[in-house]
Design a protein around this nucleic acid. Structure first.
Lengths: 194, 194
DNA sequence: GTCTATACTTTGATAGAC
DNA sequence: GTCTATCAAAGTATAGAC
């Protein structure tokens, strides 16, 4: 089982992009084949069906989160700035796509969370990954926060603000709902530090 | 054009329920026919295609928001309690469905916001409806809030918290992400009133 | 591991009688 | 306004040679 094949990577990258743009059900296997430049034989050699391919995409997202978001954000020394650096990646994504696409995890969550339980579990793992990175920032800043602040609960709020902000920005085709939501969150964190 | 037909209503109710549970693309016209107990002829008499049916469902949601959520919430005299009463309807929905389903608008947003522009606009109108109701609560409480509070921006935050909280609750199959997010929001509003 | 051809199902939508 | 029959296209997945 050669997990290190260029074809497999191509398949995952194409599927991830198409699922992100069009959704899972609206993306056909044929379209993935065309976009990745591979044939049906290869696809079904690596993945036993469409849902299995999706699971691969979810793993792919976990790796990309670590490399493209979590690691770069850790370069910020201040933990609160680190937290907003994480949110900043989504702001950048919105800017670069004219507020289209939205969050790849959130989109799949809305479409599939109840349909396939294994997919739901995979999405839950991804959310947990984000939250634990956010919680780590908050824990590192805990001495500055109001005594008794529940950083786990606060991390859930941060993720809610991010997902809800991205969703509104996408539907509105405007950065404002995201920017405003994040600005209010920053105001809240400021008040928690007073 | 008889907008008052029982068949049309049935079709909309069935489609709304199925889209909510399974998503748009994953729901077949045949399934809607079966669930509503109508025939293909009736469906295509009232709606010219699947997307047109979806537009009907979006209007249906706008009416239900007014009747089932906005109007009942207005019975709370205190505007801040009125706001949390609106969020309370989603908490109730999560409780009654074991945290399945999620927000019908948010789910469709994640799946379809970029595919059909007219759908995106319909979803934007629905979000605007929610936000204006929330903003009205905040405006009514403005004298209690910190001077210069941007109630429009704050309303966006409230909607972000709601959508993000529901999304996490659904993926996690637990009420906690929603409860925690809303609790933190309440703490923020309390601090804005200090 | 990849290719080509294809089996089989379901899809959204239409036609025409009533 | 509703019924039944049906179409053409697209869907996922498989078979078997190379």
């Amino acid at each position: 089982m050669p997990l290190r094949g260029k074809t497999r990577e191509q398949l995952l990258a194409s599927a991830a992009g198409l699922f992100h743009r069009q959704g899972f059900a609206a993306t056909g296997m044929a379209q993935i084949l065309e976009h990745s430049g591979t044939g049906s034989g290869s696809l079904y050699h690596f993945f036993k069906n469409k849902e299995d391919l999706l699971q691969g995409v979810l793993e792919h997202y976990a790796q990309r989160f670590e490399v493209e978001i979590a690691a770069p954000a850790r370069q910020h020394a201040d933990p609160i700035e680190r937290l907003f650096a994480i949110l900043g990646f989504y702001q950048l994504m919105l800017e670069q796509t004219s507020c289209q696409l939205g969050c790849p995890i959130g989109n799949l969550a809305g479409e599939l969370a109840d349909s396939h339980d294994s997919v739901r579990e995979g999405l839950a793992r991804l959310f947990a990954l984000w939250r634990s990175e956010i919680k780590a920032c908050l824990d590192a800043a805990q001495d500055r926060l109001a005594h008794g602040t529940d950083t786990e609960a606060l991390a859930m709020l941060v993720l809610s603000v991010m997902e809800g902000g991205v969703m509104q920005a996408r539907v509105e085709r405007s950065l404002r709902p995201f920017e405003n939501s994040v600005a209010m969150l920053r105001d809240y964190l400021n008040r928690l530090q007073a």
